[in-house]
Amino acid sequence: MKEIGTIARHTISVIVDNEAGVLARVTGLFSGRGYNIESLTVAEVDHTGTRSRITVVTSGTRMVIEQIKAQLDRLVPVHKVADLTIDGTFVSRDMALVKVSGSGERRVEALRIADTFRARTVDASVNSFIFELTGSTEKIDAFVELMADLGLVEVARTGAVALSRGPSGL
């Protein structure tokens, strides 16, 4: 199908039965139908251990996003699908661990920037730090970019988790 319309990024929440293979069903759907995954997070979210919440950030035209939601919704272990991007405002957070190595002025500068970003230092050696940073995807992108010139060694990120604002839930 020829793409018509603008491509937009959507954050989609999916409540699934916490059973073997459910993540493979979701990721297989995206790869099999050629949809894009920008990030995907999944973890158990109820105390009985029967349900998990998947947060997937994807992008596509309106028709593609509609298809993604419809395709997700018809998977048997899926309870609910919500498009946070169109359902209202929402809070989205990504966490990153960022390892930086260096000494002297570069080390001090890294620490100063980390402070500005309200990153926590969770590991330190004489010539390295690991910073823990939580925030929007854009904030983490900006932080990682700044660290690139200050001895960035590696980054681990969780991908986005998100909830809609206000009193109601999925």
Binding site: M1, M63, E66, Q67, A70, Q71, D73, R74
Partner: peptide
């Protein structure tokens, strides 16, 4: 009966 059949190829 299948929502995913709607607007898949043709609006």
């Amino acid at each position: 009966i299948d929502l995913s059949s709607i607007n898949k190829n043709v609006p």
